[in-house]
């Protein structure tokens, strides 16, 4: 049976979580413009619950062409813990490098490696922005492991699944992002671990109480 958000949260808690996400991703958009000098459009986040085993299927469903996708994962730790996952459709190295106004040498050989590193740096900033803002609103903070790329094949997908606990349900908060005028878009998900769901419920109530 499909897991359901209603089994985990009351309808009030669900609304609070949705509003926190709206605020967090809005704040992230505003601050990202300061950090990377580009307007990143983040869509209204969508929250749902999935079984970890369905994650590759879910990713596939959400990208128009499943070929040559770059998937990036970054774990975060704290009371609020889980993974940020960024899915980038494959774009040319130049487009990606163009997001950051740095000068890179194009000697052919190192360009591919640099492209990977640039992806990781952009991913780190995007995931950090969204996770950081959510944490801030929930009155906590998190630390991060370095992000890494996941190869988009069955082995890569298995590694991704194996990095979670078995039979875990995860709360997925998904947003579509687009770098304005760069024709680069993708989607970003925040997945929470089972362990932080109790904490999350508590944090949602605390958040609301501060307005009562």
């Amino acid at each position: 049976m499909e897991p359901n958000l209603n089994d985990i949260f009351s309808s009030d808690e669900k609304d609070i979580l949705q509003e926190i996400m709206n605020i967090a991703f809005g704040n992230a958009t505003a601050d990202l413009a300061q950090v990377i000098d580009i307007y990143v459009v983040l869509s209204v986040p969508n929250i749902k619950v999935i079984d970890i085993g369905d994650l590759p299927h879910y990713i596939k469903q959400n990208i128009p062409s499943s070929e040559n996708t770059s998937i990036l994962q970054q774990k975060f730790w704290g009371e609020f813990r889980g993974s940020g996952i960024l899915v980038f459709p494959q774009t040319s190295g130049k487009d990606i490098a163009g997001i950051l106004d740095d000068q890179f040498s194009d000697d052919g050989f190192t360009l591919h490696r640099q492209k990977t590193e640039i992806l990781l740096e952009i991913g780190n900033i995007l995931i950090g922005a969204c996770v950081g803002k959510v944490s801030e609103l929930l009155g906590t903070f998190v630390t991060y492991s370095p992000p890494h790329l996941i190869v988009d094949d069955s082995e890569g997908h298995n590694n991704l699944i194996n990095s979670f606990e078995e039979n875990q349900t995860a709360i997925v908060m998904k947003t579509i992002f687009e770098f304005e005028n760069k024709n680069i878009n993708g989607f970003l998900m925040i997945l929470t671990d089972n362990e932080s769901i109790d904490w999350l419920r508590h944090a949602l109530q605390n958040f609301m109480e501060s307005y009562e």
Partner: peptide, 10 residues
């Protein structure tokens, strides 16, 4: 958002 309205109202 009902929550946003409630927050503001409070």
């Amino acid at each position: 958002s009902p929550i946003a309205r409630k927050m503001l109202k409070n």
